[in-house]
Design a protein around this nucleic acid. Sequence first.
RNA 1: GGGUGAUUAGCUCAGUUGGUAGAGCGCUGCCCUUACAAGGCAGAUGUCAGGAGUUCAAGUCUCUUAUCACCCA
Length: 927
Amino acid sequence: MDKTYNPQDIEQRWYQHWESQGYFQPAGEGDPYCIMIPPPNVTGTLHMGHAFQDTIMDSLIRYHRMKGDNTLWQPGTDHAGIATQMVVERQLNAAGQTRHDLGREDFVKRVWEWKEESGGTITQQLRRLGASPDWSRERFTMDDGLSEAVGDVFERLYDEGLIYRGKRLVNWDTVLHTALSDLEVLNEEENGHMWHFRYPLADEQGNATDEHLIVATTRPETMLGDTGVAVHPEDSRYQHLIGKFIKLPLVGRLIPIVGDDYADPEKGTGCVKITPAHDFNDYEVGKRHDLEMINIFTDSAEINDDCPLEYRGLDRFEARKVIVADLDKLGLLDEIKDHTLMVPRGDRSGTVVEPYLTDQWYVKITPLAEPAIEAVETGRIKFVPDNYKNMYYSWMNDIQDWCISRQLWWGHRIPAWYDDSGKVYVGKTADIVREKYNLAADTTLRQDDDVLDTWFSSALWPFSTLGWPDQTDALKTWYPTNVLVTGFDIIFFWVARMIMFGLKFMDGEVPFKEVYIHGLVRDAEGQKMSKSKGNVIDPLDVIQGISLPDLLEKRTSNLMQDHKKDSIAKATKRQFPEGIPAFGTDALRFTFAALASTGRDVRFDLQRIEGYRNFCNKLWNAARYVMMQTEDKDIGLNNPDRELSQADRWIVSRLQSTATEVAEHFEKYRFDLAAKALYEFTWHEYCDWYLELSKPVLFADDVSDAAKHGTRHTLVSVFESILRLLHPIMPYITEEIWQSIKSLLEINHDTIMLQSYPEADATLIDEAAQQGMEWAQQFIIGIRKIRSEMDIKPGKTLPVLLNNWSDTDQQQFEQYSREILSLAKIKSVEWLNSDSDAPDSATALVGEMQILIPLAGLIDKDAETARLTREIEKINKQLQGVMGRLNNPAFTDKAPANVVAQVQKQADEQQVALEQLQQQLAKIESM
RNA sequence: GGGUGAUUAGCUCAGUUGGUAGAGCGCUGCCCUUACAAGGCAGAUGUCAGGAGUUCAAGUCUCUUAUCACCCA
């Protein structure tokens, strides 16, 4: 083995081996355990969020697989309608074409080609991460089976009246020319203006008068579609005008003044212009008062032909300027105020979304939402952390019908057909429809042009991937799945919809029993990672390393806003002056696990991963030591004479506790605590103490073979358990090392990933060994402290005198004498009779026993005085607090007896220690 | 405006049913001790955001104020 851990050398080959051997496939026996991967965009690439999420899932999967469960991690990808279509359209645009030049069929063909070309990227990256899903079951939301399921669901919901078609206001993306669901629209505050216009009242003949109402708007261009003005019915200023008319400027239309609560008398002038076809609130007002709906835009938000000639063809923002200017010319512009407003933008295109009147398909959601709410209320589905259920409820209780049609070409085409008269029929193919609806064979049917929202197919993911609508064995085995691992940003988009559809189509069975919500990965400064901010870290760069020039190139190329280039480059150079070194997959995964606490944000800091890379190196070197001590040596594997030392029993005992702890943390999704427990045990107990304790035994000539066998065996077997404990989080390094040591234990299996996960054996918990170890540690640390604080060379061996000891102390020492002498570098030990006069010495305490190191020639009197004074002060301070409580009758009377006893014990111990140290101090000072 | 979460060592964060605060990184000193300098040994560091309350006892429970973040309107 190399002296230094080098992840590049070991990672890739193991993955290939695992996959080719089919180790990721379910075992077929044991309790079923299943996680569905949240399908990433098929043409996407892996980012830190994926890497984090997939590390968590893979750790759970490997843990359960090792526990012997019938474990399935179902992989697959999503067709990501808008995102994918946009990418291909952009490619076409770059070549001077549009999708319309190609036509629908050829365009879709092009998207499939693009999918074939780049579709493997993200799954390859997942492999690099060590993810172990059953690739043989990989699915894609648009493959045949899943498309079949989508068609079935649509048809069933339609037949039950839960899907309907309606002309409604939708969020219209004017660039992508498609409707968007509420969730795909991001509302953000932006600076804008509020324009106040004078709208003239009309007289009996319908002519404008000199009287005006003042209305305010943030979107002046919509006035072309105004079909009313609303005032509050109780508003005494305007009450008398209700029923009268306004002569709409520029357009000349007579529009009514209506009384409606929507007009807030406190806000602005109390008069509101009503544009039912271009505003969601106005739409409702319009419906209540039977106002006309006039659409003023084309699909691209240019003024359409239903508007006055001079505005036709103008872009909406251009029209805004012209209309304001024209009104100003007419003296109808009252004022312009600065105003911050919420602007809705399409999450993909970034353009301002327009409320727009179109025909769309909707899912009637309330009947589906009710059981979905109940499933969480009754605990059939649990959120982890629990408080996310509030977010879920708040959305579900106020849920709107779901607009599922998208005016795209890439996606599941809506299985609805129209005859020549425009009557609609729903079925997967024209033939099916003819049969279902008893239509004549020659009836011409035209399929709906639209496709379904991508989330419609994703909502079926937990059962469609298992073969539904067929009642497959897989479906019976793994549905409901155990846990969904996802980010909170996707609770509404996906989690809620899976719950609704799962309950609906799987006979009321939930799609998963738990939803584990993880945090969002941010950069070291806590900023969200984004291409436009230029602070993205590619998980593969962390694994493999990247030079500064390459990183700069990556972050500054293809920027939407070119002017940011310099500041991004500067920040990158400051943060990564040397680029990013290669940390390896295991270190990255361990870092993710360690960061996966209950918080919402996860800051990714290179210093953190560096620490865990060092941990890998520690493990690596521990393995080297273990190998050196056991390879080609007798470890007494089949030898009943094997003799365990107190230290051997101690580490075995600690291993049991660690195994228990780690399992508990895994069950509760506390990967941070699991990682911490593993790190602590491996480094600070096994490496720092046990390995050192093993040396005096193994290096000595006067130790029995049986004892050496015992220690060698413990050394290697505990280490092998550590590897298995760590494997779910760090698959590669544990496999690599395990392969080297498995033969020592005569293990004949091929891979660590199918070994059993260590379970605690309560009979191996050894209290006596642990107490003994504590005693020994106190002894050793006491001497080390004196050494360090007295500036004694580490190599120098010391004579030690023991005073005020008990029989127990002698027994403890007996158990650990060899180790103590070696680790504390002690030359000789003398047990003083308590009445004998000890020489002037530096002192440490082990309980009541004094460890004395004679001062002669070694120790500086002043330094020892100072040291003792510090110690005394420290203990004194603690003792005061403890005594304060004990002297308070309220405490001794009311606190539970065991707590009082514990505090009393503490006080006694500190009291003794204090006296000892004070005596010692007096002695030193009197020298 | 409604909701949720956060505020603990220089930094990033843990902290179980209330029992008197921990880790990693960083920092200081000594050491290349035959697994590891990506290391070892030893060490320093806290008005647990502010205030009030409940309690023998509050980082933890209640109320309140402030700041920040996110979600919804």
